[in-house]
Simulated assay, not measured.
Amino acid sequence: MMYEIISFRELILDVIKIKVAGQCHDKESQHKIIKESKRIMSSILHHATLVEPDRAKAYIRQHQRGLMQLIDEVEALTNENEPYADQKSRNGMISGLVKLLHQMVIDLQQHLPYYFDFDCPVSAASQEQLILDIASNSGQILKKVEELHADQETINLFKQLFKNLNDYTGRFTFEQAKYLYAFFDSIKMALNTFVPPLDFSDIILLLVSLNFNHPFFYHSCCSHLNRELQNCENISEQYRLIHFFKKLIGQVFKTISIPYHKNLPDIDEAILRYIESEISYLQSIDTIAEDLTRGGILESNFKVTFTVRQLALFINLQVEAGIITTKSPKLLHQYITKHYSTTEKDVISEKSFKNAYYGNVDKDIQKVIEKIVVMLNIAQDKC
């Protein structure tokens, strides 16, 4: 029954051409097209009830694609370069026809959602309107975020997310369009419930609850968690932090059932997989340390006469000289802070060791040199 769409297309194009020539009355043409659109919709809906579900789905989606192609074809006529005596009236008529065709597609979606193809791209006009809505909502949200005294990390997250949505080169699908309208409404409602200062972790939980599985948001979450882990004083604090974060993500209740991107994992599942990999990494550090201690390679707590800064410099020199080889400075720092103590501290924080590892103080360098000279003298005596 696709011939009905073909006939409908011919009717619409004929009316546009006649209108251009000034040979028809607006009301008569409008009534004729509206009457035909209702007849076609009634016929489509009736026929879909007479066939098997699989055939009905194919039938509906065939007509959906036909209507979408017709929408794009009619929209393109607005931008024709040929001059017309009454261009404004012509464009107004085309705009009305496009709205009518859009309504037919919406009727298919509302009456037969199970058969409707939500992966189908929206029309060019719908895409343009959606981009305008994204820009408008983005401005409102950024203003509200700044009013809530959000930190720069949160502001940058929203700015980049909105930029990515605005710069999207393809067309959004019907499902993505439906999602984005719900997404922006939900964010604006949620922000009205927050009190300043707005915390980045609150935004993570909010966007996870909205099922926003955009790649940039995922990478932002991972980067944020990694920075927080780096700021921990020791591996025990890292364990506590990462398990607490895992608990928060696992308990998030999703308020939007569909994800932003259908072909990507749900955002909570993706973040939880990243967290599990970080937990496995921390466990591997403990395992390596236990194996070395059990094998007698190092004492479980090895005390040195250096200060923390001197020990860090001494370890750094061994790495640069090739005595100690490691692909992960972070792993080395965690091992040293777990198994070494100094004259000034029984427990070395990973953060203080890391800062000392990459910083040099003249008096500390001199102290390390003195110890190395003593080592050289001992070695010479053994020759």
Rank of each mutant, 00 (worst) to 15 (best):
P259H: 09
I271C: 13
I372A: 07
I235H: 04
P215W: 03
I131M: 13
E350L: 04
F200S: 13
Q251K: 11
R240F: 08
Q87F: 07
S42A: 08
K354A: 13
I369W: 08
E28L: 12
N226D: 14
L229D: 07
E73I: 01
E233V: 03
Y3N: 13
M375P: 03
A182I: 00
H219D: 13
E28C: 05
K303N: 12
R39G: 00
I44N: 03
E370I: 04
E237W: 01
T342C: 04
T78C: 05
K99G: 08
K38S: 11
T307P: 13
S43N: 09
S223M: 09
D54Y: 05
Q64V: 05
S43P: 00
D86W: 02
I365M: 12
L207C: 09
I297F: 13
G96I: 01
Y84F: 10
L332T: 07
S138E: 14
L282F: 12
L191T: 08
E276P: 05
F253Q: 11
R294P: 04
L332Q: 06
H333D: 09
S126K: 05
S29P: 08
P121K: 06
L108K: 02
P196C: 00
D14A: 14
E146N: 11
F253S: 10
D185G: 15
L67M: 11
R65F: 10
L229H: 05
I33S: 12
F306K: 00
V145W: 04
V74H: 06
D185L: 05
K247C: 03
K354P: 00
D86H: 10
